[in-house]
Each structure stands twice: as structure tokens, then as C-alpha cells.
């Protein structure tokens, strides 16, 4: 589904990603772990098409197409979903209008007619139940005045609405208490399909208790320095990132 080859990217002239290669197949869950500042969020942003990072080298293929050629909205319509670490507040734009516009853009892309108001409300209701989101939240402006936990749930709600093929969840667990974490993880698990894949970006192993990854990568200083099964996450939790640092330094 996704092939990243030797990807390098700079922000304001500083190299942040220093040659990343990664392959994600349908049905897989990948976890990318790493200390702060290792480039995790930059990788997520680059995959979703944020322009602040400049790609200097490498390629990204998604469903056989050149991902880097696509605009952020094209990527979304092709099934890529980014769960933001810090979801953006957009005053004055209602959640309903926002989601309806997004869904219709996706439908148009697939050659379908715009969704009817009643169908839309029905789907909203279903998905809200699925992610256990308070129905009052969707009557407000996008993320405006939401608590940290509400914002993250809202991300999962949008993911449920858009039914992506590839979900990239950037630190979705940060700032969540244990109940909210469970709700978010349940949502992700329920939304998983055989033909979809998920990349979970996280600092802590905690989330991986709920979303069990097939593959764990450790990102360090802009490079993937270790790739293994889910046991790697547990090892990291026990030994901390210093252990990786030492290993990298000794090489």
C-alpha cells in the first residue's frame, strides 16, 4: 500500500528526515516510536502533504501512485487520514458543515452524488456512537473550545466518517487519561478493515497495549534505527530511549 524509499526532508535548511525507508501493507498496523525531536511528526506531516518541510530526496508510493505529487486534499480523497497531534481550532465553521463538505468532496471524487441530509445525519449518529463522542460536540465549531481529550476523540470521529485506507495517528494518545485512551483505541480497532492499514506514532508504549501493532519501528535522529515485532515496544518501555541512543552511538 505504502512504500517510502530513502526519504529525506529539511525544515528551514535543517535536515530532519535523513533517509527513511518503510513499507506498509494492507491489514497491517505499524507503530513508529522514538524520543522527542526524532522526526516522527515531520514524517506524518510529510505523508499528509504539509508544505513546511521540503523533500530533498527519496520517493513515496501510495497505491502505486506518486504520493509526493499529490495535494493534501487529493491524498485525503485517495484514503489517507492524518490524526493531528494538535487538532486545529476553526472558529465559525460548524462541525456539521465541515464534515458534510469533506464527505461530499470524497463522494465526488468517487463519482457519487452528494449525500442526502437524512443519510448524513444517520451516519453522523452511528459514528458518534462508535467513538463515544458527546453529540453536543458536533454542533459546535471545529475543535473550538474542546478539551484535549475531546479534540482527540473528534479526530477519531472524523476518521470514522471518512473511512480511510491508511490512517496515520500522530501522538493521538498524548494528553489523554486512561478512559479517553481506551475510547480512542477502541475506535481505531473497530474501524480496522482487512484492506486498511494504520500507522500509530507514539512516544509511549501505553497506547500499544490497546492497539496491538504488527511491526514496531524506532525513529531516531531522522532515521529508522530498529524494526521488530511488538515485543520491541515493551523492551523500549523497560530500557528507555537511552538504550537505543547507546546502540546507535556504538555503531
Amino acid at each position: 500500500m505504502l512504500q517510502i524509499k530513502d526519504l529525506k526532508a529539511t525544515i528551514e535548511g535543517k535536515e530532519i528526515l535523513k533517509g527513511i525507508s518503510l513499507e506498509v501493507k494492507e491489514g497491517e498496523i505499524h507503530a513508529i516510536m522514538g524520543p522527542n525531536g526524532s522526526g516522527k511528526s515531520t514524517l506524518a506531516a510529510v505523508l499528509a502533504g504539509r508544505e513546511f518541510a521540503k523533500i530533498t530526496h527519496g520517493s513515496v508510493k501510495y497505491m502505486g501512485k506518486d504520493l509526493l505529487e499529490m495535494s493534501p486534499e487529493e491524498r485525503s480523497k485517495e484514503g489517507i487520514f492524518l490524526g493531528f497531534q494538535y487538532p486545529i481550532e476553526i472558529p465559525g465553521v460548524s462541525m456539521v458543515n465541515f464534515m458534510k463538505t469533506a464527505i461530499n468532496e470524497h463522494r465526488k471524487h468517487r463519482g457519487e452524488d452528494p449525500i442526502s441530509a437524512s443519510d448524513f445525519l444517520k451516519i453522523m449518529r452511528e459514528k458518534k456512537a462508535l467513538v463515544e463522542i458527546d453529540s453536543a460536540l458536533t454542533s459546535r465549531s471545529v475543535n473550538e473550545g474542546f478539551s484535549g481529550g475531546e479534540k482527540k476523540r473528534n479526530e477519531i470521529f472524523q476518521m470514522a466518517m471518512l473511512e480511510p485506507k491508511l490512517s496515520i495517528l500522530d501522538e493521538t494518545d498524548s494528553g489523554l487519561d486512561i478512559d479517553a485512551l481506551r475510547v480512542v483505541a477502541n475506535g481505531v480497532n473497530k474501524l480496522k478493515r482487512d484492506d486498511s492499514a494504520t500507522i500509530v506514532i507514539t512516544h509511549y508504549q501505553r497506547l500499544l497495549d490497546y492497539i496491538v501493532p504488527d511491526v514496531v519501528h524506532v525513529l531516531f535522529d531522522g532515521k529508522i534505527v530498529k524494526t521488530a515485532g511488538k515485543e520491541l515496544a515493551i523492551e523500549l518501555e523497560e530500557k528507555g530511549y537511552d538504550w537505543i541512543k547507546k546502540e546507535v552511538d556504538s555503531e
Binding site: G49, S76, A102
Partner: peptide, 8 residues
């Protein structure tokens, strides 16, 4: 960007 990332 947030809006575009949702396909708009």
C-alpha cells in the same frame, strides 16, 4: 491545511 487534509 487541516481542512485540505480532510479532502476539501
Amino acid at each position: 491545511f487541516y481542512l485540505r487534509s480532510r479532502g476539501i
